[in-house]
């Protein structure tokens, strides 16, 4: 077998997304084993809680410091751009703003730490006989289950809120546009039910696919150097990989979190007042 084929066999970027159990934990039929994705979720949650509690709670003053200004800017971005514009009234904002804001911040942190090399890996290396985890990049949001779970919470919350505000009959009736001929009501209702589930799929797949694609692109471009063992290729692959990396970190990370939270606010607002 040629060295190139051997290199290709060794380089498996998709293996970065395999999730072998680190600690087996079964709860009946459900496998709650702790793996790399779970650890990333914990790390993301810890960072989100500590960072935003620090900048939004401590040392607050009517004349804000730089830290407080950053906290207020993030808070007001979510409040003004997502909650206030899409949730129909103050009561709905009061109830749903914390959820939308927490969703945005949590996804943003999960996305961001997905591009920072961390020593959370299945693979290890040895330094002076000490076994250490390999540093690598991995995003929990590049896993369909994570994105789907977050989307499912929004999906359930949306419909629960729609039924709570409007009653089940009025809420389901609101899915059918006014003035539709009677013979079209049934097929349109079916289409609307499908579209509601499509929201769940689009919300989760958008986040998952974008994050996965970004990681795969970076891994492939960097991996090409090792597959072909070519310095000349590195001249192209490293800048392109860096550009993709910066694009992901600066733009995609924030946009995906923003879009997810924004759509959540839009869906919930639409469910509370369907005529809007």
């Amino acid at each position: 077998m040629s060295p190139l084929i051997l290199a290709a066999e060794v380089f498996e970027p998709q293996h970065e997304f395999r999730l072998p159990a680190w600690v087996d934990l079964d709860l009946g039929a459900v496998d709650l084993s702790i793996n790399k994705a779970v650890v990333y979720l914990w790390v993301g949650a810890a960072i989100t809680i500590l960072l935003f509690t620090w900048i939004m709670r401590f040392g607050l003053s009517l004349r804000p410091s730089r830290r407080q200004t950053a906290g207020e800017a993030v808070y007001e971005l979510v409040y003004n751009q997502m909650a206030e514009g899409n949730l129909p009234h103050r009561k709905a904002i009061g109830r749903w703003f914390p959820y939308v804001a927490a969703l945005f911040l949590y996804i943003w942190v999960l996305n961001l730490i997905g591009f920072i090399p961390l020593p959370i890996s299945d693979e290890h290396f040895h330094v002076a006989g000490v076994k250490l985890p390999t540093w690598g990049i991995y995003a929990a949001t590049a896993n369909l289950s994570v994105a789907l779970a977050l989307a499912l919470m929004t999906f359930i919350g949306t419909h629960v809120e729609g039924i709570r505000y409007n009653g089940p009959f009025k809420y389901v009736k609101s899915w059918i546009p006014h003035g539709v001929p009677k013979f079209l009501i049934a097929p349109i209702f079916v289409l609307e039910v499908i579209s509601q589930f499509m929201r769940l799929i689009s919300l989760s797949v958008r986040l998952f696919a974008n994050m996965l694609a970004g990681h795969m692109l970076i891994l492939v471009f960097i991996g090409l150097i090792f597959i072909f063992q070519s310095v000349v290729l590195a001249v192209i692959a490293v800048p392109v990989g860096t550009i993709i990396y910066l694009f992901e970190v600066v733009i995609v990370v924030t946009i995906q979190a923003f879009v997810f939270a924004l759509l959540t606010a839009i869906y919930v607002g639409g469910a509370i007042e369907p005529e809007h």
Partner: peptide, 23 residues
């Protein structure tokens, strides 16, 4: 990559809800 893992979904929901509550 596209496998839905209920256990991971539960972990996701739990960690997010804790984060949401504390924030």
């Amino acid at each position: 990559l596209i496998k839905v893992v209920p256990g991971l979904m539960i972990w996701t929901a739990v960690t997010f809800l804790i984060t949401f509550y504390i924030l």
